[in-house]
């Protein structure tokens, strides 16, 4: 009887993709996914952990392979949910209610990113805004795809993205503007 159980477990353990197909998909999607997680979380080590967990969950999900584009979007959705879980575990009441200062990247990460213009600007944004901006302008996702990945209402994406873009454009043009505003507050 145990042999039967072990055989069934073996069959159930078979993954929806074969090893070679997964290796190719991983090669094409791992770096963009890690970049997304690192930019949104502001923590490279956390991004690595969440990226690995995202792939394991992606493979464990009993889901047929719908092609590269859908697979990648599904992967980003898993990663986004893992990020949300991570923030929730930190006993935060809600992502929207947390002051932006708390989400600023660590001094080390800020030092590494300071050589780029985008790093400090992103560090001053809310995590949800970072997500939306990255998905829209780095990954080139449409509003509907962003809604699919983040779980937000498709209708609200346009307004949220517009506000986030306006704010980051201001930060990119005058990097000290937000610092001055923060000090004045």
């Amino acid at each position: 009887m145990e042999n039967v159980a072990t055989g069934e477990a073996q069959r159930a353990a078979e993954l929806p993709m074969d090893n070679d197909a997964f290796a190719g998909f991983y090669e094409r999607s791992a770096r963009p996914l890690r970049a997304y997680l690192a930019r949104v979380s502001g923590d490279a080590a956390l991004a690595d952990d969440l990226m690995q967990e995202s792939y394991v969950r992606f493979l464990c999900a009993a889901r047929s392979w719908d092609g590269e584009v859908a697979g990648r979007r599904y992967l980003f959705r898993i990663a986004t949910n893992l990020l949300k879980d991570h923030w929730r575990r930190a006993r935060s009441p809600s992502i929207e209610e947390i002051p932006e200062e708390l989400f600023a990247t660590s001094p080390d990460a800020a030092r590494i990113e300071s050589q780029f213009l985008l790093g400090p600007a992103l560090a001053a944004m809310r995590p949800r805004d970072r997500q939306l901006l990255w998905l829209a302008y780095a990954e080139g996702y449409s509003h509907r795809e962003i809604a699919d990945v983040t779980g937000l209402a498709s209708a609200s994406i346009r307004l949220l993205l517009f506000r986030a873009r306006r704010k980051i454009a201001r930060l990119l043009r005058e990097p000290e503007a937000e610092g001055r505003q923060g000090r004045a507050r």
Partner: peptide, 9 residues
Amino acid sequence: VMLAFQSAR
């Protein structure tokens, strides 16, 4: 914004 994000990516 797009140029900044594309370059970061």
